[in-house]
Amino acid sequence: MRLIGGVLAALAVAVAGGAMSLSIGSSAHWVLFDLPSLNTFVRLTNQTLAFVNERVAGDPVPALPELRHGVGLKLGETLGGIVRVGLQMAVTSVNTRTQGSWDAGGTSHPVDISLEASLVAFSIELSLVLIPDVLTVGLSAGGGASRVTYRCAFPRTLPTDWSLPFLPKNEDTTYSGSGPLGSMAVGLSLPLGQGVSVGLEAGFRITSAWVPTAGSAVLDLNADGLGDAVRFSGLWLGVMVRMEFNL
């Protein structure tokens, strides 16, 4: 209790006592994703596609790329001096898709699978300016809402005499979920004058794992009877632009 009081007091002194400024920043990110359950679905799908491709003459259906990295945007606003507090909103997204067709016996068997995962995060940010206008480290905590959109058209009868217990489900559904998250980031910027600076930002987001749902349906692309938990933890690297206004 005494520790929390001390931190709050230090924060108040730092925010109020220093040279106050309002900083508005935005950044575009390249984001690494860690979505093992969705990538397990991707691998199961690719094994199925490869198995059928080997047994059907003609053009193969391309493999579905794994969900490894995507893009993101962040907007933030902080107030303070050396210690700054503020709010930030971040949007990240990753998607994958494959399309093709198997032609056998004069019949076409079209395949079209797409999967998109996105996260919108709102957090409270606490940052510390280590070198004014140049180096900042920050921590944030808040909540996030995710959407997993799955669209699939896959033939129910394969153009081969083999049958497989796993076939991607035919559906067009958006699953959603939410949970707490936090992040830490380091920003290195180059002042351009007039309070404007540009720079690089690297950070790591940690989120809890949650199972998205659509009504009463649970995301279960692997068809193993268990929900597919998704977690949007991962590193990001971004380019940022920041404007600072002295108050």
């Binding site: 860690d34 198995f51 005499d161 049958s163 790591f204 940690i206 991962g234």
Partner: peptide, 22 residues
């Protein structure tokens, strides 16, 4: 953070998948 969030340290079970004919 790194241990809990990177796939490298997670235990991911294998996936059983097979084909049958007929």
């Amino acid at each position: 953070i790194l241990g809990g969030c990177t796939p490298k340290f997670q235990t991911v079970p294998p996936e059983a998948l097979f084909a049958i004919r007929p």
